[in-house]
Each structure stands twice: as structure tokens, then as C-alpha cells.
């Protein structure tokens, strides 16, 4: 059996794949956080809860309404996006005039409510969610065995990340968003309905989180706690990348996921903290983050 640095290559590739999967979720979630933060100046602590909610909506749709994975991939983000729109209209929008930290505290409270409620109803244990039959099984790539569902997750998250990036960089709606991030008042003075833009942006960010949640459901179990522990790691990812750049958030997400996977191969004890350690190093060397601008 071939080895690299004394590690059997299938194990190495396997961990890189797991890293890439984790990285896919980091990228999707930090992308959503960055989009929301850019315009609303709110760190959406509820992002993890919205990811969890996406997974649970898929789970409930399947078990109570018999709606399959593919439809859930569309319906769950719409449902969670709609919930987010209500949250923005009724609560977040009241906080735009005050210190940004209150937005963080409000969304933290919302995350606790969602998480606590689901734990109350479903218990802390995870619920299984089967991958769709079209994506079950795997292929032998010669150097490793690739479960098809995992390959799909990487591809789907890449497509969504690139799609979101194109939406922001190449469309008129994206131009409104970028301009409003710089000077929302002027954009509104030009006749753009900026309050609506804020609402839609929060909805979009939450929908991205929910999409990630549905993708995650067959890999990790659907559990009330799946979101918050993840979101704290994503915060570290965001600090490393800096929130100034959408592309930066995506790249940082994937790279840190892979680094985490590699750590699992070479020094497994440190794998749960490696991203935090990288964050600490980046703070020492480049406080504004790799893609960030000093504010």
C-alpha cells in the first residue's frame, strides 16, 4: 500500500475529502454571513440555527409530507428565508439605528429560542436522514473510494457559492447591494427601495444557510445542536478571511476545511482547534484578516 509521510494514501485522500466537505459548509455559511454583514452590519448569530432549521424542515417534509430531498432542497431555503424576512421586518429593522452589537445579541437570542425549542421537541440526539437513492453508493476513483453523495455536496456548494458571487458581482441587483454596502442613503436617494433590499438580503443569507442545512442532513444527523457549534467555527473562518470580500469568504472556507482535514491525518488531537489556532496566528500577523481591509 502506498504511503505519504507514513500515512496510507487512501486515508489521506479520505481526510482531504472530509475536509473539503466541511469546507463546503464553512464556505456556504461564511458567504451568507458576509453578505448579511456587508449590507446590514449585523453578525447573524442565528445563522447556525437557520442552518439547523433548513435540515429540520427537510426532515419534517420527508417524514410528515413525504416530500423528497430534491424538493426539500428548494422548499426548505424558501421556508427559512420567509421566516428570516419576518424576523428582519419585525425585529432586526428596529436596530439599524443603534450599536451593531445589539443585532448580534438579538440574533443570539433568536438562535437560543430556535435551538431550545427544537431540543425540547426532538431531544438532543440526531435524527437520521437518508441520502436520495440517486446519490447513494460510491465510485472507485482508483486512488480512493468516493461516496457519490459527498461528491455531490462539494459540487452543489461550489455551484451555489459561484452563483451567489456572480449574482453580487455581475447583476444589477448585485450592483445595488454593493453600492448600498458603501452608502445606503445615497442608493435610496436614487430611488432604490433600500429597506426592501435589506429584507431580501437577510432572507437570502438565511436561505443559503438553510440550503447548507439540507445538504448536511444526510451527512451529519439532523440535530438541534448541529448549527451553533458549527457557527462558532464559521465565525473564526470569517475572522481569518476578513468580511470585506465575498470571494475571500468562499476561498477561506474551503481552504480551512481542507487544513482541518489534514490535521486529522497528522495530529488528530488538534483537529477540533486547528481553525481557532489559525485564527490566532492570523490575528497576530494580519489583524484585518487575509482578504479584509483595515477599518
Amino acid at each position: 500500500m502506498s504511503t505519504i509521510f507514513g500515512i496510507p494514501t487512501p486515508a489521506l485522500y479520505g481526510q482531504i475529502l472530509i475536509g473539503l466537505i466541511n469546507g463546503s459548509f464553512y464556505a456556504l455559511l461564511s458567504l451568507g454571513l458576509a453578505v448579511i454583514f456587508g449590507l446590514l452590519r449585523v453578525i447573524n448569530f442565528a445563522h447556525g440555527a437557520q442552518y439547523m432549521l433548513g435540515a429540520f424542515v427537510a426532515y419534517l417534509l420527508l417524514n410528515y409530507l413525504g416530500i423528497n430531498y430534491w424538493l426539500a432542497l428548494i422548499v426548505a431555503p424558501l421556508v427559512v428565508g420567509a421566516v428570516a424576512v419576518v424576523i428582519e421586518r419585525t425585529m432586526l429593522s428596529r436596530l439599524y439605528g443603534v450599536d451593531h452589537l445589539y443585532g448580534l445579541l438579538l440574533t443570539f437570542g433568536l438562535a437560543l429560542i430556535l435551538e431550545g425549542a427544537f431540543r425540547h421537541w426532538f431531544g438532543a440526539a440526531g435524527q437520521p436522514y437518508a441520502a436520495p437513492s440517486q446519490l447513494s453508493g460510491g465510485v472507485n476513483l482508483g486512488f480512493m473510494f468516493l461516496p457519490i453523495y459527498r461528491g455531490w455536496v462539494v459540487v452543489a456548494s461550489l455551484v451555489i457559492c459561484i452563483g451567489t458571487w456572480l449574482l453580487i458581482e455581475k447583476t444589477q441587483l448585485g450592483a445595488y447591494l454593493r453600492a448600498a454596502t458603501e452608502n445606503a442613503t445615497l442608493v435610496q436617494a436614487f430611488g432604490v427601495n433600500v429597506p426592501l433590499l435589506l429584507t431580501l438580503t437577510y432572507g437570502l443569507g438565511a436561505a443559503l444557510a438553510a440550503f447548507a442545512g439540507v445538504l448536511a442532513a444526510p451527512i451529519y444527523q439532523v440535530s438541534p445542536l448541529m448549527g451553533t457549534n458549527l457557527i462558532i467555527v464559521v465565525f473564526a473562518v470569517v475572522v481569518v478571511g476578513g468580511m470585506g470580500s465575498i470571494l475571500g469568504a468562499i476561498i477561506t472556507g474551503y481552504v480551512l476545511g481542507i487544513l482541518e482535514g489534514l490535521t486529522k491525518v497528522f495530529y488528530p488531537e488538534a483537529s477540533s482547534i486547528v481553525i481557532f489556532v489559525i485564527m490566532a496566528i492570523v490575528l497576530l500577523v494580519r489583524p484585518a484578516g487575509l482578504f479584509g481591509r483595515e477599518e
Partner: peptide, 18 residues
Amino acid sequence: PVTVLIGIIFVICVLLFR
């Protein structure tokens, strides 16, 4: 559920009496 309670107090505090 205590977590829900804490979340609700958070939301009320932030929105109504900061």
C-alpha cells in the same frame, strides 16, 4: 426549556429596554 426562556428574555431586552 430554559434555553428558550433565556432567548426570549434576550429578544425582549434588545428590542424593548436596552
